[in-house]
Nucleic acid binder design. Structure first.
Lengths: 203, 203
DNA sequence: CGCTTTCCATAACGGTCGGTATATAATGTA
DNA sequence: TACATTATATACCGACCGTTATGGAAAGCG
């Protein structure tokens, strides 16, 4: 059932690359959101037909979850490196500048895919929403721990608690991607990051 | 054609209150977003039938714009009062606490309606998106002006510019509503606001 | 009372949605 | 070659979408 390792080379081989098709699906979900991406959009971008998609990925919801896995492992890798920075300030700087590069530059769609998923509105997207919220909660816990360590090491003022600082930084990140997907120019987002870093607490 | 002032009391009078129906429509759009709110959802909540809705409001898009007008005038009134506060710090505090009360408490839907509109994904919601972005840009300009005045009056440090500070505060507001609509408990959002205010610049 | 005007209710429109049944093509195995 | 197995292509499914045509009910006006 779940033995994807053994390819079971019988029958006709598929004519497309699953990984590449998933990458295209990710791009579509990223730009249009879960509800906004229709099966026609997906199959066209992936270069396959609907039966092939359903045979390879299950259904639209399963495809989204797999695309989200790919998104996390490929596009959110900087968040893991951020947590290993030596100071809380460096963590925040790594996070904010990384988000700026990821979500506001280059050729990838603007904005954060998780944000689209969180605010997905359709009734049948509740499972999507729950998945995104759950994933975000785990990185939030990691940040709280990291900032708690920083506070224990004397980096932060007494009146700043790790939970509040985490919510504060995550809010700035979310606002950054909101403004990015709203079309704000990159220079404005850079000013936002610089201001937020200038206001970062130090004792 | 556009003379809404003269009721032209001929013919059969309508059996519902337009303002009340619009308020119900606002609630539906606020909770489900533009795409997520179907005409069936709207007519059911408004207590009217589809032809009545089309006769009174035009179509779905026009209904949304009118609902957004109502939202701004009723639910975003605190933003006008915020701009009149005596100091930049007081403006931010009024803004943040007002958003906390509006979007994270009471009986209204959680989160900001403008945020749902901005991130609306469907192809036919581009006009909606443009409207929301345009409205937000105007309040952004007002904030930049207000903070520029504060800086001229010596309230802010030299290395803080009004544009960056505005983007920073708007990002926190947006993150606040994102987390609110994601189901964050109110205590957590209060900590977020307190932390952001604790980090507000002062010279 | 007609007569006109406006509103309400039902039902239907064409289109798109996510998902699938069916038939055919392409492979490995025997 | 014959068979089993899997992928592809076409066409279709019922459900819902936003929107509107149709027909009758309720009001003001002569």
């Amino acid at each position: 059932m779940e033995s994807e390792t053994i390819p079971a080379t019988k029958g006709r081989p598929r004519e497309f690359c699953v990984d590449q098709a998933l990458a295209e699906a990710l791009r579509v979900f990223w730009t249009k959101g879960y509800d906004g991406a229709s099966m026609a959009d997906l199959t066209e971008a992936m270069g396959i037909t609907k039966p092939s998609l359903y045979a390879a990925f299950g259904n639209k919801e399963a495809l989204f979850h797999k695309a989200l896995d790919l998104y996390e492992s490929e596009k959110l890798d900087y968040t893991r490196a951020a947590l290993e920075q030596p100071t809380a300030r460096a963590v925040a700087e790594y996070y904010l500048r990384g988000a700026l590069d990821r979500h506001c530059g280059g050729e990838d769609p603007k904005g954060c895919m998780g944000l689209l998923g969180t605010l997905a509105c359709s009734p049948e997207a509740d499972s999507i929403k729950a998945d995104v919220v759950r994933r975000r909660a785990s990185s939030q816990r990691a940040l709280v721990e990291r900032f708690a360590r920083a506070k224990a090491e004397g980096e932060l003022p007494d009146h700043i608690d790790p939970e509040g600082l985490t919510s504060h930084m995550l809010a700035i990140l979310q606002g950054l991607t909101v403004q990015a997907s709203a079309g704000a120019p990159r220079a404005e987002l850079e000013r936002l990051v610089e201001t937020s870093l200038a206001l970062w607490p130090s004792r």
